[in-house]
């Protein structure tokens, strides 16, 4: 029946939250200059906005010590050409980005722990999800959100739990996380994030053609994804990090109560406080005994 109220949004209206890696340790040692990367990135943002008037782009910068919103197209002033002949989007974003990088560097100096080389991906993922939750709550009809991680620096195993939690919450709210990883090795975190949430993970082979990669793969709206062949993941690194030393491990110990992962045997679970058996052999027999007792 035609009685249902017509949809307020077309199928392909989307909100794209981009997590932009600004880690100076990565960019200073990387062969592809940040400025070139930015020009590809800005053109990509422009194309998303040109594709549909109602499309919205939010950019969150991911630094080493902090993360922050640096651009939101819904709050941007109407497009007008500034005196410097630079589009409003670029000048706004670049200015905010510069402020952010200085602030982030300042925070790093205050930190007594010394510099960390990984970016605060867990923080920016959580921020993106919060922003998306706000869109979900804005009304029964809303554009379709998705997250794009533009990551270069390597995974920080110490963020494992936080990132996994963010991934699962994205999965629950059906928000796909796309990842474009430009670093040298594959990122296990992002592979898992895209795999679990149904997004696309891609590692561009030719960074000079980054713009084409971004347009071909990551500009695809969720509606068109049901028809289009997008790159499939070849293999996903499912290895977990242990909770005790934040090391990536192949094999380890798991708490039977809360599923926390450890690289060596502990007496007590550091997460939920459950007491484990003393020795391996004893544990096996003890659990067998325990299981048997109620029946007899």
């Amino acid at each position: 029946m035609a009685s249902a109220p017509s949809k307020l949004y077309a199928d392909d209206v989307s909100v794209l939250v981009v997590l932009l890696d600004t880690n100076p340790f990565f960019w200073s040692s990387f062969a592809f200059p940040f400025s070139k990367f930015l020009s590809h990135f800005l053109s990509f943002l422009n194309s998303i906005l040109v594709l549909n008037q109602l499309n919205q782009v939010v950019v969150i910068a991911t630094g080493c010590n902090s993360c922050d919103y640096i651009y939101d197209s819904s709050m941007a002033t109407s497009p007008s050409i500034e005196s410097g002949r630079m589009p409003a989007l670029c000048s706004d974003l670049l200015q905010k980005l510069e402020e952010f990088v200085t602030r982030d560097e300042h925070l790093g100096k205050q930190d007594s722990l010394g510099p960390t080389t990984s970016s605060l991906l867990s923080g920016s993922l959580s921020m993106a999800l919060c922003y998306i939750q706000r869109i979900f709550r804005s009304g029964p009809l809303h554009p379709q959100p998705r997250i794009l991680c533009l990551q270069g620096s390597s995974d920080g195993p110490e963020q494992y739990v936080a990132i996994m939690n963010a991934i699962f919450s994205a999965q629950r709210s059906m928000v796909p996380i796309d990842s474009c990883y430009i670093g040298s090795n594959n990122s296990a975190f992002l592979q898992q994030a895209s795999y679990i949430t149904g997004g696309v993970y891609q590692k561009p082979q030719q960074l000079d053609g980054l713009f084409q990669y971004l347009l071909t793969v990551f500009a695809t709206d969720l509606h068109s994804r049901t028809f289009l062949q997008l790159p499939k993941s070849v293999g996903v690194d499912f290895r977990a990090s242990c909770f005790c030393h934040k090391k990536t491990i192949d094999m380890g110990y798991i708490c039977s109560v809360c599923l926390s992962i450890f690289c060596k045997h502990h007496k007590k679970c550091s997460t939920c406080g459950s007491v484990f058996g003393q020795a391996h052999a004893d544990v096996a027999s003890a659990s067998n005994l325990k299981r048997k007792t109620p029946e007899t």
């Binding site: 194309s47 594709l51 347009l215 709206d221 289009l228």
Partner: peptide, 29 residues
């Protein structure tokens, strides 16, 4: 939506693309 996608995708491709290879971009359904 799909037509938008094609235009964007072809924007920086200067050689003609065969119809056959374009058909391979989409799923059969």
């Amino acid at each position: 939506p799909l037509a938008k996608k094609y235009v964007i995708q072809m924007l920086y491709i200067d050689v003609p693309i065969t119809a056959k290879s374009m058909e391979e971009w989409v799923f059969p359904d």
